[in-house]
Design a protein around this nucleic acid. Structure first.
Lengths: 130, 130
DNA sequence: CTGCATCCTGGGCGATACTG
DNA sequence: CAGTATCGCCCAGGATGCAG
């Protein structure tokens, strides 16, 4: 990986409470936040709730809506209500939201490409559990 | 960013509960996990608890030890007790642990380089809060 | 200096049931 | 189909005090 120099705030200790990396972590801290953003991206930036939920196993309606509300407030996602029966809604990544796909994609890709490391971690943990 | 093709599991829906990306997220889900790993790396892979804590504002002794225990069980960190008075301990990244620095570094760097986006997010959220 | 044992609170998260 | 309202659990995580 490329590790060119960065502004001082990045390396300087102490690691301020509100430094950018921490803020990013906070943004991604919800259990479903990143998956929803990422899935929206995989679905070409827009999706209806049902489709979204079907593609993220374990995601409940409640948590989906709740998380989407948060994303909406942050301006990462828009919510559009189509006036039809039965009701249809479309969530869409905003331009801002799309920018956050990049780090997610990096992270998810890294995970997929290093599944073997994750296996080692789990094996170690299982070992230690006894 | 480079987006070369990946194995199917990555793109295929549904997004399995135990797919690699999710496992990675779980690994990093603790509030302090990534910061501790990353700080250990910044400190050349090894540090005593005191130094570690001083460099991560807000980190309590309890959470530090607790998090380090977890990392130890997963084999990402070792704990070495130096037989001196007063007691001294040294935590060290394992070879396995060092491998996980790469994605962290990516994430943290991205955050530092895109602080402006995080500002926009916060501004939007503040706006919506009213 | 390091670490453990407590105690306690908040809120993230899940299950269920109900409206339009 | 989309969303809301309740209820309640669980546990991450913070504060404090003690021990080696």
């Amino acid at each position: 990986m490329d590790l060119a120099p960065l502004p001082d705030i990045y390396r300087r200790a102490p690691f301020a409470e509100d430094c950018a990396p921490r803020r990013l972590l906070r943004l991604f801290s919800g259990k479903w936040t990143t998956m929803i953003l990422h899935m929206l991206h995989l679905l070409d930036g827009a999706s209806r709730p049902g489709q979204l939920q079907r593609n993220i196993p374990g995601l409940s309606k409640k948590m989906m809506t709740q998380t989407l509300r948060g994303l909406e407030e942050m301006g990462l996602v828009t919510r559009e209500v189509l006036q039809v029966m039965p009701p249809a809604v479309e969530y869409r990544l905003t331009a801002l939201g799309q920018q956050f796909i990049e780090p997610l994609e990096m992270l998810y890709r890294w995970g997929a490409e290093h599944a073997a490391l994750l296996d080692r971690v789990d094996r170690n943990a299982a070992m230690a559990a006894r």
